[in-house]
Write a protein that binds this DNA or RNA. Structure first.
Length: 543
RNA sequence: GCGCCCGUAGCUCAACUGGAUAGAGCAUCUGACUACGGAUCAGAAGGUUGGGAGUUCGAAUCUUCCCGGGCGCACCA
C-alpha cells in the first residue's frame, strides 16, 4: 500500500517537475492517528529547489493526484506541508482476508529473495562453557538469521573456531594438572590456567576412560582432545536449549591446510600491501588511513589472528555467498576494518561483508551489577542463566534492546513470572486469544465467511491497521539487523489487542459480529505466533 | 593521548535513521468487569533529550567543541 501511495505521488510529481529533480519519495507511518495512515513529506523537501512554500507545493500536488477511491479514502494537507492519506475501510477489511489466507506465511518478504547469506556467530573457542557474554551474540546471530530468512534469503548459520594455538594448549595443561591431582601425580597448573569446575570434570572423564597412567607418556594431546570434545558437546547442548541450531562448523586450521593463508599473503604482497620489517610480515594498514601498520606474521613465524580472519572471509565469499554477516562484540570494533580493507584489496566486494557490533551485557542481581572475570571461576554460564529464567525469557532479554547499546540483564526481573516480566505480556495475549477460541467451542463455524465490515469500533479498526504493519516491522528489523524493532512492534500489537479485549466482547455477541471479531483475533494470534517464532520464543496456547 | 560506541522521565529503554505534541515498561498515586484468563485496562504525575554553538522550513537524530561512562589502541585471541 505504501508503494502504491509513493507511486501515485511520483506520477503526480511528474507533471510538476523535471525527471532529474525527482526526489526520493518517503512514505512514513504517522505517529498520531489524526495524521492518517500514511504521510508524505515531499512538499517540504522540494520547497528549497522549487523556491515555493511547502503548503503551496502540497496543494498543487494534491490537485494533480489520481488515486483509486476503493483503496484511499481521503488525502489532506496538514501541518507545515505534510500530505496525509487515509485508507478506505473496505480495503482494510479486505486485508484481513489476505492475512487469513497467508497464515503462518504472513509477514514474509522478498527483499532478499534468491540470496545466499552466511551468518557467522557464537564462534567461541572450545575452552569453556558459553557464558552470558556469548549469549547475546548467539541469540542475536540466530534471530538475525531468522529475520533474513523471512526476507527471502537462504541462510547458513556458521560457527568458526580454532582448536589449535596457545589457549587450547593451556586448556590441555589445565586438565592435565587436575588429572594429576586425581591420580596423585604432579603436573604444574599453568599460569593463566582455566580454573573452572568443569576442568575437573573433564579430568575425571579422562581418568575413567584412559586410566591413571597418562602422565608418564607424551599425552598432552589426549587431554586437549578430551577437553575440546567435552566442551564442544556442552556448547552445542546449550545452544540447542536456546533453540539454536548451527548449520556449519568451520575450523580455522583448515585454512592452513588449504593454503588459503599463504595465498592471502602472496596476493596482498602482489598489490604492494605487504612488507617485511624486524623479521615480521606487515600489512600496510596505513594505506587505509590507519595510524600504524599491522603485523600479519610474527617474527616467530606464527600468524596473528588477523591473517586467518582475512583468509576466512575470502573463503566465505569464495563459497558464493551474496552476503556474509559477522556478529561481533564491542571488543572487536577496532579490528574488523583491517579485515574488510584486506578483502577489498584482494578484489572482493567488501559490501558483501556486513558486521554487526553489539555492546556488552551487564548482569544485574539484587540491584547490583555482577562482576565477571573469564578465566577465574566467577562467571555465570548461559546454562545457569537459563536454569534461573528459562530459555524464552533469556532469548527475549537479550533481544529486547538495540544491539548498539549496553544491555542490562536484570536477573530478578527475568525470574519474575508475573506482570513485571515483559515476555509474558506477549505470550499472554496469544494464550488469551486461544482461550477465547476454546470458550466459543463449536457455537461458531470457524471457517465460515465473516463479514468484516461489521468491525467498526475504533479499537477494531486500529487493530487491523496494526496487523498490516507486521511485514514492514520485519523488514526494518532485518534491514538494520535490530531484532528489538520486532519486539517493539509485538508489544504494540499486544497492547492493541488488550485494549480491544476491554472494549469489545465476542462470547454472547450477535453471531455475525462474534464471527468477524473471532477471525480478527485469530489474525492477531497468528501474527503474534509468527513474530514470536522469529524471536525463537514459544507462543503457548495456555500459560 | 588516539579511535569507536553510548548519554533521553527516579530506574531500564523506545522514537520507523531529519518530521507534526519525545513515547513504553518498572517504581509512585487514583480508578475499572457478578460475563470471553485481573499475567489485563483507563487515568495522574514524572523531560531544557548531559551542556554550549552551528547546519535548515524542522534536530534526540547531522557538524563542531566541552563534560561524564564503556570498549579498544601488542610481533595476545
Amino acid at each position: 500500500m505504501k508503494n502504491y501511495v509513493a507511486e501515485i505521488i511520483e506520477k503526480a510529481l511528474g507533471s510538476l517537475l523535471d525527471v532529474n529533480q525527482m526526489p526520493e519519495i518517503i512514505i512514513e507511518n504517522p505517529r498520531m492517528p489524526e495524521h492518517g495512515d500514511a504521510a508524505c513529506n515531499v512538499a517540504m523537501t522540494l520547497a528549497r529547489t522549487l523556491k515555493k512554500p511547502p503548503r503551496a507545493i502540497a496543494e498543487e500536488l494534491v490537485s494533480k493526484l489520481e488515486y483509486d477511491e476503493s483503496a484511499i479514502k481521503s488525502v489532506e494537507i496538514a501541518g507545515p506541508g505534510f500530505i496525509n492519506f487515509r485508507y478506505a475501510d473496505d480495503w482494510l477489511y479486505h486485508q484481513l482476508e489476505t492475512i487469513r489466507s497467508a497464515g503462518s506465511e504472513f509477514g514474509k518478504g522478498e527483499s532478499l529473495k534468491g540470496k545466499k547469506v552466511l551468518v557467522e556467530f557464537v564462534s567461541a573457542n572450545p575452552t569453556g562453557p558459553l557464558t552470558v557474554g556469548h549469549g547475546r551474540n548467539a541469540v542475536l546471530g540466530d534471530t538475525i538469521s531468522r529475520l533474513l530468512e523471512w526476507s527471502g534469503a537462504k541462510v547458513d548459520r556458521e560457527y568458526y573456531f580454532n582448536n589449535a594455538g596457545r589457549q587450547m594448549r593451556i586448556l590441555g595443561q589445565s586438565v592435565a594438572s587436575r588429572y594429576a591431582d586425581l591420580v596423585g601425580g604432579t603436573f604444574p597448573f599453568p599460569e593463566d590456567g582455566y580454573q573452572g569446575e568443569y576442568i575437573k570434570d573433564i579430568a575425571k572423564d579422562v581418568q575413567t576412560k584412559h586410566g591413571d597412567d597418562l602422565l608418564n607418556s607424551d599425552s598432552e594431546a589426549i587431554f586437549r582432545k578430551a577437553a575440546e570434545e567435552a566442551i564442544f558437546d556442552d556448547i552445542q547442548q546449550t545452544l540447542e536449549r536456546m533453540n539454536i541450531k548451527m548449520d556449519l562448523f568451520f575450523n580455522e586450521h583448515s585454512l592452513y591446510e588449504s593454503g588459503a593463508i599463504e595465498k592471502v599473503v602472496t596476493d596482498l604482497r602482489e598489490k604492494g600491501l605487504v612488507f617485511e620489517k624486524d623479521g615480521a610480515t606487515w600489512f600496510k594498514t596505513t594505506e587505509f588511513g590507519k595510524e600504524k601498520d599491522t603485523v600479519l606474521i610474527k617474527s616467530s613465524g606464527e600468524p596473528t589472528y588477523r591473517l586467518p580472519d582475512i583468509a576466512y572471509h575470502a573463503e566465505k565469499l569464495n563459497r558464493g555467498y551474496d552476503l556474509c554477516v559477522d556478529v561481533f562484540g564491542a571488543d572487536h570494533i577496532a579490528t574488523y576494518p583491517d579485515v574488510i580493507n584486506a578483502i577489498g584489496a584482494l578484489g572482493y566486494e567488501k559490501e558483501k561483508v556486513d558486521v554487526l557490533v553489539y555492546q556488552f551485557v551487564t548482569i544485574v542481581q539484587d540491584g547490583k551489577p555482577f562482576k565477571m572475570s573469564t578465566r577465574k571461576a566467577n562467571f555465570i554460564t548461559l546454562d545457569e542463566l537459563m536454569d534461573e529464567t528459562g530459555a524464552d525469557v533469556t532469548r527475549f532479554f537479550f533481544l529486547m534492546r538495540a544491539p548498539g547499546t549496553h544491555l542490562e540483564f536484570d536477573i530478578d526481573q527475568a525470574k519474575e513470572s508475573g506482570e513485571k516480566n515483559p515476555v509474558f505480556y506477549l505470550q499472554y495475549a496469544h494464550a488469551r486469544i486461544k482461550s477465547i477460541s476454546r470458550n466459543l467451542g463449536d457455537t461458531l463455524d470457524a471457517n465460515a465467511k465473516a463479514d468484516f465490515s461489521l468491525l467498526k469500533h475504533s479499537s477494531e479498526v486500529s487493530l487491523i491497521k496494526q496487523l498490516l504493519l507486521f511485514p514492514e516491522s520485519i523488514e526494518s528489523a532485518a534491514k538494520h539487523k535490530e531484532p528489538h524493532r520486532l519486539i517493539n512492534y509485538l508489544n504494540d500489537l499486544a497492547a492493541g489487542f488488550h485494549k480491544f479485549y476491554h472494549d469489545c466482547r465476542i462470547v454472547g455477541e450477535e453471531e455475525s459480529l462474534a464471527l468477524a471479531r473471532m477471525q480478527l483475533l485469530e489474525c492477531v494470534a497468528q501474527v503474534m505466533a509468527n513474530g514470536l517464532g522469529i524471536l525463537g520464543i514459544d507462543a503457548p496456547d495456555r500459560m
